[in-house]
Design a protein around this nucleic acid. Sequence first.
DNA 1: ATGAGTGCAAACCGTTTGCAATCGG
DNA 2: CCGATTGCAAACGGTTTGCACTCAT
Lengths: 141, 141
Amino acid sequence: MTDFDTLAGQWRAEGHKLTQPRRAILKTLLAAARPLSPAEILERGQTFYADLGLVTVYRTLEILEAMGLARPVHLADGCHGYALSTPGHTHHVVCDRCHAVVEIVGCALGDFLDSVAERTGYTITGHWLEISGLCPECQQK
Amino acid sequence: MTDFDTLAGQWRAEGHKLTQPRRAILKTLLAAARPLSPAEILERGQTFYADLGLVTVYRTLEILEAMGLARPVHLADGCHGYALSTPGHTHHVVCDRCHAVVEIVGCALGDFLDSVAERTGYTITGHWLEISGLCPECQQK
DNA sequence: ATGAGTGCAAACCGTTTGCAATCGG
DNA sequence: CCGATTGCAAACGGTTTGCACTCAT
């Protein structure tokens, strides 16, 4: 997670303009505790900039994803939401009930992937791990 | 992977009728070397039963998924295909180039998940791992 | 015979695109 | 000022639903 100014800096560094709609989207993602669908980003973003449109949400997410600043997270229902990502390789743990998300920054799969490569003959180029569970809060209910 | 008769047996055991369209879909999935999109299943399935309709593909996949006999596999482009799955817990290794798929039957993530649970306070209920790479054949090109 | 299963067409929903108006640098 | 960016409306593609007909049992 980064703060707004750092994010804004990276944004401009790529030559993108920092418009009001885009500010609203960045703030929304920064404030989110779980991955948000485009529609949710729209709704929340409108509290920052009332005229925000869904199309702009899609276009901004596209840029964020290309920059590696946000990534799509597959949710249980088949749709996917977007969450800001720390740079580099991360995995997510998503709460089944409230969808709160925690990023796992380290990746302990190296040995496992080596054995997979050996067993299958594949050259491994990447992997995607998503863990589901119940967050501490939801366990109490 | 199972053979047709075993699959058909499980199918009937749940009280579903084994119609021509459904036979065609099962045969198609059995013959597939990689996950297929609903549209691909339709196309290939029509070689077994010419009047097969797309709606039936969706409805049959829904049942197969509920029975745990097939599972959706997220492909690189965001769409997802379906592949028959061995019962129980498996992971997939998908070739970036030709989409050939290998199932990893063992799961060596236990320790890793334990440490995640400890670090995050979550109760882990499940996980989804998909590995991408190049299959032996595609490496030679 | 009879209810489960089917295909068609239409509805539906999330996403993308064309375009004229607008905004940021 | 000028091109990047915007929102709207319409197009689009994949998925789901309503319905009358058909098939497996």
